[in-house]
Amino acid sequence: MAGSQDMFDAIVMADERFHGEGYQEGYEEGSTLGIIEGRQHGTLHGAKIGSEIGCYQGFAFAWRCLLHNCAAEKDREAAIAAPMNRFALGRLPRVTEGSRDWQGLRSKKMKVLESLIGLIEKFPYDDPTYDKLHEDLDRIRGKFKQLCSLLNVQPDFKISVERSGLSF
């Protein structure tokens, strides 16, 4: 009787043991798989954000320099540079008053530009757990659009079709 009890115990315990062994193996394998799978998704999303933020950053920095450059040039060769700039700014349909006041418009551009750069530099682009990620990203996007319309440009970052869906 005791023997048969042991036998059943062995069977019951074997069940537990085999399950436990399998679980342990599976857990290790699953941990590795989880890291790999998570990394793959994370890399894609991180790259999307990095690409978008980098674009804005590069664009903003370059334009800041171009505007400075332009101003210096204007100061140096006021007679030649002014009509050219006026021509360029004259194409702005919305800012008619500003286009007459070149200095005023330039300072407005610079203001928006600096505020965009400030937003970007504050943005923790490499932290997916940042709780205001979407909120801040939207603000950056909005600021960027505002800057583009002020500059009267429509930049094409040539982000490939496959990854064009920058919102997630």
Partner: peptide
């Protein structure tokens, strides 16, 4: 893994 990959990417 996601966070790690995100940062790297």
């Amino acid at each position: 893994g996601f966070n790690q990959g995100y940062k790297e990417g």
